[in-house]
């Protein structure tokens, strides 16, 4: 579904991603782990071109999205993204947050979008918040709304950029539960996370990124129980 080959990203002289290649298959749940500053978030952000790669190729669903002629906006409609800091639109109600993109991009009519949004809100138990503004919500509620906002576009893949890192500890659970549920429905997902327990449980594959490279990849059991790479062993010994 997503084919990455030779992906390189630099900030000035600093090489963040160095010749990364990876293939994400339909239905896979890929957890990307690694130390801070290793480039894992940058890797994720390159997938929907929030960061412009300096080299290499990314193909999504048969389209080369790194091609300058590629319609980036069209590609992004099919890739949902969830951010560390939620990024709900502060000037819009919760309902409008969810319906904005589908209506503006003429994917759904105003009514259909509203109906779908209300159904999504019911699903996460926040129907009563439809007409309030993001500032009135807790962090966990905001992140759950952000997830269904992405789902409202019916994406083919969901990208999660440290979805629980900015949350108070007692709110992590509700967000992980929702991500788990989305995973169970068969969504293809790439999750950058520090939650090792969650990665082990939900991921079908774990990718370890360090110093701008994928150092090791494999099933959660292989990666967590019998890590091969020395840096991965050191990393795991610190976080688990």
């Amino acid at each position: 579904m997503i084919e990455i080959s030779g992906l390189t990203k630099r900030y000035g002289d600093h090489v963040v991603l160095n010749n990364v290649s990876e293939h994400i298959r339909p239905g896979e749940k890929v957890a990307v782990i690694g130390p801070s500053g290793s480039g894992k978030s940058t890797l994720l952000r390159c997938l929907n071109l929030l960061e412009t790669p300096d080299g290499g190729k990314i193909t999504f669903d048969g389209t080369e999205i790194t091609d300058p002629r590629c319609d980036v906006n069209e590609v992004r409609r099919h890739m949902g993204m969830v951010f560390q800091h939620f990024n709900l639109f502060n000037n819009l109600t919760i309902l409008r947050n969810i319906t904005l993109a589908p209506v503006k991009l003429k994917i759904k009519s105003e009514e259909d979008a509203k109906k779908d949004a209300l159904a999504l809100l019911a699903r996460i138990g926040l129907s009563d918040k439809a007409d309030t503004y993001p500032a009135m919500l807790s962090g966990g509620q905001k992140q759950r709304v952000a997830i269904v906002r992405a789902l409202a576009m019916n994406p083919k893949v969901m990208l999660f950029d440290e979805p629980t890192s900015a949350l108070d500890p007692e709110m992590v659970g509700e967000v992980l539960d929702l991500i788990r549920e989305v995973a169970r429905e068969g969504m293809t997902m790439v999750i950058v996370t520090h939650e090792m327990g969650f990665a082990r449980e939900v991921a079908s594959r774990v990718v370890f990124v360090d110093e701008g490279n994928i150092k090791e990849t494999g099933s959660p059991r292989d990666v967590f129980d019998s890590p091969q790479d020395a840096r991965l062993r050191e990393f795991l010994s610190k976080v688990i």
């Binding site: 929030l50 906006n73 069209e74 890739m79 993204m81 951010f83 576009m153």
Partner: peptide
């Protein structure tokens, strides 16, 4: 992040 989130939805 506001602009990024909007762009990530395809706007």
């Amino acid at each position: 992040g506001q602009m990024e989130a909007a762009r990530s939805l395809g706007l």
